[in-house]
């Protein structure tokens, strides 16, 4: 499909069964590129923000075809609990 035409896969067929929230998974993947050690961050909060702000339009990019399946803006209830 798209990769055959030298274009990236945008996930338009929706998330796979293994993924609960595709956008969060992508942000997690991107964050793994940040310079973080096992014990503590080598970056301060401001530097992390600056780095993450390089990702323009994260909602449109990472959730383009998967937002309806995402738990974002939904209520998660504990099983068996009313209300």
């Amino acid at each position: 499909m798209c990769p055959k035409a030298n274009m990236p896969c945008r996930g338009c067929m929706g998330p796979t069964k293994a993924v609960t929230d595709q956008g969060a998974s992508m942000l997690s993947a991107v964050s793994s590129l940040l310079n973080i050690t096992d014990s503590e961050s080598m970056l301060n909060e401001e530097q992390i923000m600056e780095m993450m702000m390089q990702v323009k339009d994260p909602l449109g990019t990472f959730y383009a075809f998967t937002l309806p399946k995402s738990p974002l803006r939904r209520t998660v209830k504990e099983r068996g609990r009313k209300g």
Partner: peptide, 8 residues
């Protein structure tokens, strides 16, 4: 690249 919803 695709017959419907092309990408090129």
């Amino acid at each position: 690249g695709r017959a419907t919803h092309p990408v090129f």
